[in-house]
Computed example of a mutant assay.
Amino acid sequence: MIHPHTYIHPNARLAQNVKIDPFTVIHHDVEIGEGTWIGSNVTIMEGVRIGKNCRIFPGAVLGATPQDLKYNDEKTYVEIGDNTTIREFVTIHRGTNDRWKTKVGNNCLVMAYSHIAHDCIIGNNCILSNSSQVAGHVIMGDWAIIGGVCAVQQFSRIGQHSYIGGGSLVNKDVPPYIKAVRTPLSYGGVNSVGLKRRGFTLEQINQILDIYRIIYNKGMNVSQALEFIEEEFPATDERDEIVTFIRESGRGVIKRHTKGGSDED
């Protein structure tokens, strides 16, 4: 299952049924889970942990040192969850002493030419479309989707079940369950289609819609809106996730689109 033209360091730890194609290089202190396939011309550097049944396509580079001048050769890691697919020429860098690791969860799809920088935490079931560029320290919640050719600034947070339209610059936090679109990036409604596909009930979706109407359409400031939501809406996981996310946002969340912006829509 391992081609003779592949180099594997003697202390790399490979589980059963790992398949590695020719001209791939596996450095020391690497762990690869059972059933994973690694294509040709892949470079997996030290400190990488890859789960079970992953697919790593040709040209990917995992575990290179971070592009951070503060990095001082400390021992850090990249962790890739089970059943995750990493397409051609993706780069994922190790962490720094901020989080000590960069992590991509289970069942993710990272499409070709995407980059995930140091100390990012990508949740489960996420999709990063072609040429997504994610800077350091970004947190991305479960089931979030980034459209193609997006740029996410460092320290941004992307909420669970959110969708970001292709070609966007993400320089504010994106709350959970919404669509983020236009230029500058703005609230574009609730991601109702995605939520239905994932089994959310109509009652859950309607509550999310009502909460975001308060936040974006009623003319309240953020503090007023969150207080109103906590007083007037019954406690649910979705309500609490939205309130906590916005309250803990350090750089603020994206705003509602207003006329006069650069987007003609």
Rank of each mutant, 00 (worst) to 15 (best):
residue 4 P to T: 11
residue 4 P to D: 13
residue 5 H to Y: 14
residue 5 H to A: 13
residue 6 T to D: 13
residue 7 Y to L: 06
residue 11 N to G: 09
residue 11 N to Q: 12
residue 19 K to V: 14
residue 20 I to T: 05
residue 21 D to P: 05
residue 23 F to N: 15
residue 24 T to P: 11
residue 24 T to R: 11
residue 27 H to D: 14
residue 27 H to T: 08
residue 31 E to H: 07
residue 32 I to A: 01
residue 33 G to Q: 00
residue 35 G to V: 00
residue 38 I to P: 01
residue 38 I to S: 01
residue 39 G to W: 06
residue 39 G to T: 08
residue 40 S to T: 10
residue 41 N to K: 01
residue 43 T to I: 14
residue 46 E to Y: 09
residue 46 E to A: 12
residue 47 G to E: 00
residue 50 I to M: 12
residue 54 C to I: 08
residue 55 R to C: 07
residue 55 R to I: 12
residue 57 F to D: 15
residue 58 P to M: 13
residue 59 G to Q: 04
residue 61 V to I: 07
residue 61 V to F: 03
residue 64 A to V: 06
residue 64 A to M: 01
residue 65 T to E: 12
residue 67 Q to C: 02
residue 68 D to N: 11
residue 73 D to L: 00
residue 75 K to P: 05
residue 79 E to S: 06
residue 79 E to A: 07
residue 80 I to A: 08
residue 82 D to Q: 02
residue 82 D to Y: 01
residue 88 E to A: 12
residue 89 F to D: 10
residue 89 F to Y: 09
residue 91 T to A: 13
residue 92 I to P: 02
residue 96 T to M: 01
residue 104 V to Q: 08
residue 108 C to N: 01
residue 109 L to A: 02
residue 111 M to W: 00
residue 113 Y to Q: 07
residue 113 Y to A: 03
residue 115 H to W: 09
residue 116 I to N: 03
residue 116 I to T: 05
residue 117 A to K: 01
residue 120 C to S: 13
residue 121 I to H: 04
residue 121 I to M: 02
residue 122 I to Y: 08
residue 122 I to F: 06
residue 124 N to G: 05
residue 124 N to Q: 03
residue 125 N to A: 07
residue 126 C to V: 00
residue 127 I to F: 02
residue 128 L to H: 06
residue 130 N to G: 08
residue 131 S to H: 13
residue 132 S to A: 11
residue 133 Q to D: 15
residue 135 A to G: 12
residue 135 A to T: 09
residue 137 H to W: 04
residue 138 V to W: 10
residue 138 V to M: 14
residue 138 V to K: 12
residue 142 D to G: 04
residue 143 W to F: 14
residue 144 A to R: 01
residue 144 A to V: 04
residue 146 I to H: 07
residue 148 G to V: 09
residue 149 V to L: 14
residue 150 C to Y: 07
residue 151 A to P: 09
residue 152 V to P: 11
residue 153 Q to S: 05
residue 156 S to H: 01
residue 159 G to P: 06
residue 160 Q to M: 15
residue 163 Y to K: 00
residue 164 I to M: 08
residue 164 I to T: 09
residue 169 L to R: 14
residue 173 D to C: 05
residue 174 V to R: 11
residue 174 V to D: 12
residue 181 V to W: 10
residue 182 R to F: 03
residue 183 T to I: 10
residue 184 P to A: 00
residue 185 L to A: 11
residue 187 Y to S: 14
residue 187 Y to G: 12
residue 189 G to M: 08
residue 195 L to D: 03
residue 197 R to L: 00
residue 199 G to R: 03
residue 200 F to H: 03
residue 201 T to L: 03
residue 204 Q to S: 14
residue 205 I to Q: 05
residue 207 Q to V: 02
residue 208 I to P: 03
residue 210 D to G: 10
residue 213 R to D: 11
residue 214 I to P: 12
residue 215 I to K: 09
residue 216 Y to V: 10
residue 217 N to G: 12
residue 221 N to D: 14
residue 228 F to M: 03
residue 229 I to C: 11
residue 232 E to Y: 04
residue 234 P to A: 06
residue 235 A to E: 10
residue 235 A to H: 08
residue 235 A to C: 05
residue 236 T to S: 03
residue 237 D to R: 05
residue 239 R to H: 06
residue 245 F to L: 08
residue 245 F to H: 08
residue 246 I to G: 04
residue 246 I to H: 07
residue 247 R to N: 13
residue 247 R to D: 08
residue 250 G to A: 11
residue 251 R to V: 08
residue 253 V to N: 09
residue 255 K to T: 15
residue 255 K to V: 14
residue 261 G to K: 04
residue 262 S to E: 13
residue 265 D to N: 15
residue 265 D to F: 14
